[in-house]
């Protein structure tokens, strides 16, 4: 059964798109991530022009993050003030990112930069997460407590000026590292079509030492607004948001996510993190292999309208 995508200007099999959305939704529900880092490479792999894949991926991230954010909002585990500082950096980053995106596209290095970014980020985050979760599992096996946050322990981040008090997180922290983190995530959102949760969450926990209970909710808060902003900017400048593709992905994604959440609840925290780490590493390695092995065809053709 095929469906015509009006913006991507091609026909695709709706069942494959639904399957992709459901699978990614399942994983994102299970691990509590947006799934952008899976959906964008999958779409590109399925011949959707990368420009469309990135912009549409960001749209899908909005939908998949919103139900999570609502849950966190009800529980009161979103630090709006911290989220707003992150968001300011994020919007600036997204603006730079969209500009960077068109620049790289013009010089023909967009696919390389996207792949390299994915390999470096997924590889490092995946390895760190795997290392941490394996250690936690070992400790759990030995019946030891595993403090994720060591109170009182400070690093260089806490010596920066422009400090601000974040009541909900119960921390007193400089806005510089927070806005910078938001900025970097913003760039990633618009260049790679990811929400960036898989980087933001570890960075907030380990680097900024923000209490874990507000981290996920606050990062979702930031992700929704930066992704929404990216969608609007991409739609206004590149006309590359395919609403039909996005809608099919969203519907499948939110349904898949519900089942993912159920499976996720049966697993323990460190087991979940280990599995997510393996998944992240697998995607990273897959992309790394593609960069290293000789391509099937060393030539590629793009027309002025689309692609890069």
């Amino acid at each position: 059964m095929s469906i015509y995508l009006p913006i991507a200007e091609l026909s695709v099999n709706i069942l494959i798109i639904l399957g992709m959305g459901a699978a990614v939704g399942f994983l994102s529900g299970m691990f509590g991530v947006g799934g952008g880092f899976l959906i964008t490479p999958l779409l590109i792999f399925y011949n959707i022009p990368p420009v469309v894949a990135v912009a549409t991926g960001a749209n899908q991230v909005v939908a998949s993050s919103i139900s999570g954010a609502i849950t966190h909002f009800r529980r009161g585990t979103i630090d709006i003030k911290l989220g707003t500082v992150l968001l300011c950096g994020g919007l600036a980053g997204a603006t730079v990112g969209v500009w960077l995106f068109s620049l790289l596209r013009r010089v023909g290095q967009l696919d390389l930069v996207i792949s390299l970014l994915y390999v470096v980020l997924l590889g490092s985050v995946g390895s760190l997460m795997l290392w941490e979760s394996v250690r936690a599992m070992r400790k759990a096996a030995n019946n030891q407590a595993t403090p994720l946050r060591r109170p009182g322990q400070h690093n260089w981040v806490h010596r920066l000026p422009l400090k601000m008090r974040f009541k909900k997180s119960k921390i007193y922290l400089s806005v510089i590292p927070v806005a910078t983190l938001g900025f970097c995530i913003g760039i990633l959102t618009s260049v790679m079509g990811v929400g960036g949760g898989f980087i933001m969450v570890p960075a907030m926990i380990y680097l900024l030492r923000i209490p874990t209970n507000v981290v996920v909710g606050t990062s979702l808060f930031q992700i929704i607004f930066v992704s929404a902003y990216t969608v609007i900017v991409q739609a206004s400048t590149n006309y590359t948001v395919d609403i039909v593709l996005a809608f099919v992905l969203m519907i499948a994604g939110v349904i898949g996510a519900q089942y993912g959440v159920r499976v996720g609840q049966k697993l323990r925290g460190e087991q979940l993190r280990a599995l997510l780490a393996l998944l992240v590493l697998a995607v990273g390695i897959r992309l790394a292999i593609e960069l290293v092995i000789p391509p099937k065809d060393i030539y590629s053709v793009v027309s002025a309208g689309f692609g890069f």
Partner: peptide, 27 residues
């Protein structure tokens, strides 16, 4: 869809986001 995307890109983007919000919220 194509016409809106090109002639009213801002509204189109806004609508795409709204659709995502409704889908996520609805779910």
């Amino acid at each position: 869809i194509t016409q809106t995307a090109h002639e009213q890109p801002f509204l189109y983007g806004l609508f795409a986001v709204l659709l995502a919000v409704i889908t996520g919220w609805g779910a």
